[in-house]
């Protein structure tokens, strides 16, 4: 009997917990995903929240989802060392079934500030990413995965993303979170079809799927086109439910299907009701799939590393780090798309592996918006 687990992304957020409580009371939630590194502003954690984590951890149904590690930063930071320490201690306490992080590097100079942006797919970034994943695996002592990014600068990057993810996780025998709303952003923003893009992803490596909502943003550089953004602040669109139905049969090692939504978008009764209905619809799709497919549930051993991959020597690249700092500065301070484009042309990123000359105007515009939004946080 297969058993894909309908699951919730749940953090110490009162609005999110209030929306999730009916689902927990009705025993509909079979797995819990916790952004363990989002508690940095909280001095004290209520005992009842720790009890909730423990309840899922004891059943091996608790997974950790990192936000702030900044996998591809060219320079190792004290924040990353502390992040690993926190992960190690949390892993010993809660028995995570697996741990995941996001693709990209974070803009901004301070840990816990900034937005994740894409990086060039080079031997240097591959080595840094593999090194960091090995350190995460060493700290967590459980399977490690990476989530596909919603943002890309060009359609070429979109099509190479899956292959690069596969290379990154190979040394740790890792897995992928396939975020279907992130995929939806790529499909829409680059006018690519699901059938065209999905073969580029290593679907046998997908252990977790995310669904969520997002929002539309006007583009000044491409007025006829709206940009889809992964803001997690709305209900799940019909297109994403359709993607879920299409994707489930393609992922033989899938275990968790997770609904995500931010608590700040769950303050009204109407939004809580929509969240509840979205979860029930996701749950129905998953349970229907369980009832008609006979693959055994994958075990963690499927994605445990075959041998130790951890090396004491840090992989860093000063030139990459300098480019990341320069790009962050340009995006965070540009008064307009034109200003950012002009600065990029005369930056160290010009005529480099970053291929800034190929970046789509609407996506550079979005990167500016992202960097400036999160700089203020």
């Amino acid at each position: 009997m297969p058993n894909l687990l309908p699951s919730l992304a749940c953090n110490l957020d009162l609005d999110l917990l209030a929306a999730a409580l009916p689902l927990l009371e009705e025993a509909r939630v079979d797995g819990l995903e916790w952004s363990f590194d989002a508690l940095f502003q909280t001095r004290q954690v209520p005992a009842w929240f720790l009890d909730l984590l423990t309840a899922f951890g004891q059943e091996k149904r608790l997974v950790a989802h990192g936000v702030f590690f900044s996998l591809f930063s060219g320079k190792w930071s004290e924040g990353q060392r502390q992040w690993l320490k926190t992960l190690s201690e949390a892993s010993q306490r809660y028995r995570f079934d697996h741990v995941t992080e996001h693709f990209g590097f974070m803009t901004g100079q301070n840990f816990h500030h900034g937005a994740p942006l894409a990086i060039p797919y080079t031997a240097t970034t591959l080595a840094i990413g593999q090194d960091r994943l090995a350190r995460i695996q060493e700290a967590a002592q459980c399977p490690v995965g990476l989530e596909n990014l919603a943002f890309s600068y060009s359609v070429e990057d979109v099509k190479r993303h899956g292959e690069f993810l596969e290379k990154l996780i190979e040394p740790v025998n890792g897995f992928i979170i396939l975020d279907l709303h992130n995929l939806y952003c790529q499909l829409h923003n680059f006018s690519v079809s699901f059938e065209e893009l999905i073969p580029f992803y290593p679907l046998e490596r997908v252990r977790e799927i995310h669904i969520s909502g997002g929002s539309w943003e006007d583009s000044l550089t491409t007025p006829a086109k709206k940009i889809r953004r992964d803001t997690h602040d709305n209900g799940v669109p019909e297109e994403v439910f359709n993607l879920l139905t299409q994707t489930l049969p393609l992922c033989p090692n899938l275990k968790y299907v997770v609904l995500e939504q931010l608590g700040n978008s769950l303050k009204t009764e109407q939004s809580k009701t929509q969240f509840y209905q979205d979860y029930l619809r996701m749950e129905a799709i998953v349970r229907d799939f369980n009832a008609t497919h006979l693959n055994p549930i994958p075990e963690p051993e499927r994605f445990l590393p075959p041998q130790a991959t951890f090396s004491a020597e840090l992989v860093e690249d000063e030139a990459l780090y300098a480019q990341q700092v320069e790009l962050s500065s340009i995006l965070e301070t540009a008064g307009s798309y034109e200003e950012a484009q002009q600065k990029l042309r005369t930056s160290t990123l010009a005529h480099s592996a970053w291929q800034v000359e190929q970046w789509e105007p609407a996506m550079l515009e979005t990167a500016i918006s992202l960097a400036q939004k999160w700089k203020k946080k």
Partner: peptide, 18 residues
């Protein structure tokens, strides 16, 4: 998954009184 009722009650109380 069934959550212990004591945990659910504590969550409800925690949400209510913050």
């Amino acid at each position: 998954m069934n959550i212990p009722k004591s945990v659910l009650s504590a969550i409800l109380l925690g949400i209510t009184v913050q």
